[in-house]
Amino acid sequence: MSAPSDRSLARRLALAVPTLWMAALFLTPFALVAKVSLSTPALSQPPYAPVFALAEGAAAALDKFGELGVAAYRALLDDDLYLASYLGSLRLAAIATALTLLVAYPLALAIARAPRRRRAGLLMLAIAPFWTSFLIRVYAWIMLIKDEGLINHALMASGLVAEPLRIFATDAAVVIGVVYSYLPFMVMPLYAALEGQDAALREAAADLGAPPLRVFWRVTAPLSLPGVLAGSLLVFIPAVGEFVIPDLLGGSDTLMIGRTLWAEFFSNRDWPAAAAVAIVMLAMLAPMLVLYERLQMREAGR
């Protein structure tokens, strides 16, 4: 008699562990951030009010609930800086995602079409640089693109330009940094989508008279769309909230939400504003995360 209930207990435990894990490490911090975003800044430690304390008792806590409000969110609407930051982030992330796709597609295609025994090695080569520190790699780009950097040295030595190209500390530098840093996230799903295609499909198209470009646009490309979408979301979502790359490579006029958030938090010590910025960003990206999850489920189901 005890066997079935034992099993259901085990099953409940098995589900409880990840649930508790998510609750402790994701939901709780999220609730804390959400709560801070509803507070008001204060010259205290921590720098916001109200602060709940267990020792005060229920009545005092209930009073403090009344002090919570959406002032920080309203402030986001009042100051154009925030809207500009969000739009700037979306714009740069979109440009960078499109460029990453353009760079990654030929790369993934070449690896997928290479002889089978070489594919693993080539894939490794495409990804190996990303095993070193992200920070150092982004920093290294400064050496390459700054006015007296390697690229400008080469361009000026070859006589192609008279003045150094202004790349460092511009939006272009941020885009370069994102394209470089997130390349593997685009290459991997593209490679998976391309490598899985039955070569006979291309042969059938060619057999029916389609020239190679037409085979690509009508067969290879449409069948790789799930990979394109997955890769684009994997690049776009983190690129929107990127802080390190715009901070190291961007100019003072590079408006990205990650930097604005950092400034609110550390420079202005306006924790409620920073928390509100973070919550709005999450709300913005959540639909895309859901889309990505859906896509993964559909692929897994096939």
Partner: peptide, 19 residues
Amino acid sequence: SAADRDVSMVFQSYALFPH
């Protein structure tokens, strides 16, 4: 090339375009 020959093949996997 295959595209320029007036020959058509029925593939073992059928190779129907899934999309």
